[in-house]
């Protein structure tokens, strides 16, 4: 359903974040993307829905090359991909319901979203989703009144509200405690099973990844160094991905991290595309 071919991203600062990344995501498959920070995991996931524009290669989503579509078509592609974020990225001052309904923005005209008069079917679905993620009675609370785990559940409901075919999940558990992390990962896996969704999940916790995904892709310095089932992930492989006390590497990634953050800030400056 998603084919990534020789995807390349070089930030304008000269950082080579992705190098010739290629893989095919099968329908219904959950891929866990692991690798040290700065390996390009976040960049890769953001290239898929073009929050970050790639500099080379192709991203074929159901036959459409996301890297090359025009603005209108891009919106149409984006609404078929739900995204779940690190630190939730809810709109803090909007209610839970508005956050969930914002998953329909790609489908409703501006005036309808402005007046918050979403079609009844969308509202019904939002209530059902909130029920599904265990927040059935919290719909009128402001998002910033919720706890971390609850916010991530709203984030999941927002992504599912799009009725997506693919979930892009960026470090869903980065700011959650171990128990909540497992609950959230289980919820993500369960909803994917229920809806036959495919997903790419960025995750720094290797154990957690092994527990919940079908396939693991290991990135190192922007290149795929491992692609296989979770069971094949042994110490040797982990060393190739993370390096064994490879200090020069770690220093390089720290620098790369900073550069990536700076670059992302710069790309914001380029405005909404």
């Amino acid at each position: 359903m998603l084919t990534i071919e020789q995807l390349d991203k070089t930030y304008r600062t000269g950082d080579h974040a992705l190098r010739q990344v290629s893989f095919v995501l099968e329908p219904g498959q959950l891929i866990g993307l692991i690798g040290p920070s700065g390996a390009g995991k976040s960049t890769l996931i953001r290239c898929v829905n073009r929050l970050v524009p790639p500099t080379g290669g192709r991203i074929l989503f159901e036959g459409v090359d996301v890297a090359r579509v025009g603005r209108r078509e891009l919106r149409r592609v984006r609404r078929r991909m739900g995204m779940i974020f690190q630190e939730y990225a809810l709109v803090e001052r909007l209610t839970v319901m508005e956050n969930v309904l914002s998953g329909r923005l790609g489908y409703v005209p501006f005036w309808q979203s402005l007046t918050r008069r979403f079609p009844q079917a969308d509202v019904d679905q939002a209530f059902a989703l909130l029920e599904r993620v265990g927040l059935g009675d919290q719909f009128d609370k402001r998002a910033d009144e919720l706890s971390g785990g609850q916010r991530q559940r709203v984030g999941i409901a927002r992504a599912l509200q799009q009725n997506p075919e693919l979930l892009l999940v960026d470090e869903p558990t980065a700011s959650l405690d171990p128990k909540t992390s497992r609950q959230i990962m289980r919820l993500i896996r369960d909803v994917c099973e229920e809806r036959q969704l495919s997903a790419i999940i960025n995750i720094h916790d290797v154990m957690l990844a092994q527990m919940f995904v079908d396939r693991i892709i290991g990135l190192r310095a922007g290149a795929v160094v491992f692609d296989g089932p979770p069971a094949a992930l042994d110490d040797g492989v982990l060393t190739t991905i993370y390096g064994e006390e490879d200090w020069t590497m770690m220093r390089a990634t720290a620098v790369e991290d900073a550069a990536e953050a700076a670059e992302r800030a710069e790309e914001r400056m380029a405005g909404l595309r």
Partner: peptide, 18 residues
């Protein structure tokens, strides 16, 4: 928050509004 709303396929005016 802007990225999240943009990722839903929202238009520019919807991103500003939401």
């Amino acid at each position: 928050q802007v990225e999240a709303v943009r990722a839903t396929g929202a238009s520019w005016s919807q991103v500003v509004n939401y």
